[in-house]
């Protein structure tokens, strides 16, 4: 195999690539497509591919748990062990980060983790749709958490919640400098929470898309490299999907803890 041969082969395929270019858009699979238009009272609740895969994530998460716990026994089977381990894993996070007062948030945290996790993982199925690659979805979750945190802070601490923006032991003359920084960092929380998950999912899937397009556009002797890399990267994306769900859940716990206990 020499380079002239590769270049020659590429020269042959290049027009095809150009012809197929609109179809080979690596961002195409982020396109939300409405299947059913629904707009009762002028409010758009259309069923799109994004919505369908959200439902599927809910169904798969719930179905797997129900399957794992179809006949719970004192000596657990494999699936039951995994379900219990998941429970204890999240219970550990909530307990470590929030403490005993986090008990009432546990179902929500548990749901959040598995909702995000299965949205991430289902997106890896070829031809599927990655719900968490939609900024509006991660943004909705992040903003809801942010609003909940503000509500909890005000509910539990009243005006003292504003003390959240004043770090302890701060010399008074630094207040005009630090307080705006604290306010901005507080407001940045939902943005970073939403963008981190959305960007990770989008970047990973875009890269996978690009690699697959290389695979189909390159001739057989050049295709194995990007194709091999997609295999490796798909495995890596499974790991990323878990890590991002974990980070999202973990930060939610940290924010809830801040709202409940200030700092």
């Amino acid at each position: 195999m020499n380079f002239s041969l590769v270049a020659e082969a590429w020269a042959e395929t290049a027009p095809n690539v150009a012809a197929g270019a609109p179809k080979l858009d690596p961002l195409h699979h982020f396109q939300v497509v409405n299947y059913v238009k629904l707009a009762p009272f002028g409010f758009d609740i259309s069923i799109s591919n994004s919505v369908v895969w959200m439902w599927l994530a809910v169904a798969v998460a719930f179905g797997l748990f129900r399957y794992a716990l179809r006949a719970p026994t004192l000596v657990p089977g494999r699936m039951q062990s995994v379900a219990e381990a998941a429970y204890l894993f999240l219970d550990g996070i909530v307990n470590d980060v929030i403490g005993p007062s986090g008990k009432k948030f546990f179902p929500g945290i548990f749901t959040l983790f598995f909702f995000v996790l299965f949205c991430n993982w289902l997106g890896l199925i070829p031809g599927s749709f990655t719900v968490t690659s939609q900024l509006i979805v991660t943004g909705t979750l992040a903003l809801s958490i942010f609003v909940l945190c503000i509500f909890l802070g005000v509910y539990h601490h009243g005006w003292k919640f504003l003390g959240f923006f004043v770090p302890h032991g701060l010399p008074p003359f630094l207040l005009p400098l630090i307080v705006p920084i604290e306010v901005i960092s507080f407001l940045a929380r939902p943005v970073s929470l939403a963008v981190r998950l959305f960007a990770n999912m989008t970047a990973g899937h875009t890269l996978l898309g690009v690699l697959f397009f290389f695979t189909v556009t390159l001739s057989w002797f050049g295709a194995w490299l990007p194709f091999g890399f997609t295999v490796v990267f798909s495995g890596f994306e499974v790991f990323i999907g878990f890590i991002q769900a974990y980070i999202f859940t973990m930060l939610t716990c940290v924010y809830l803890n801040d709202a409940l206990h200030l700092h």
Binding site: V32, N34, L38, F43, D44, I45, S46, I47, S48, S50, V51, M54, Q134, I136, V137, T140, L141, S144
Partner: peptide, 10 residues
Amino acid sequence: VFASQIFWTF
């Protein structure tokens, strides 16, 4: 497509 996704996410 934002409105429907916000609604269905909730």
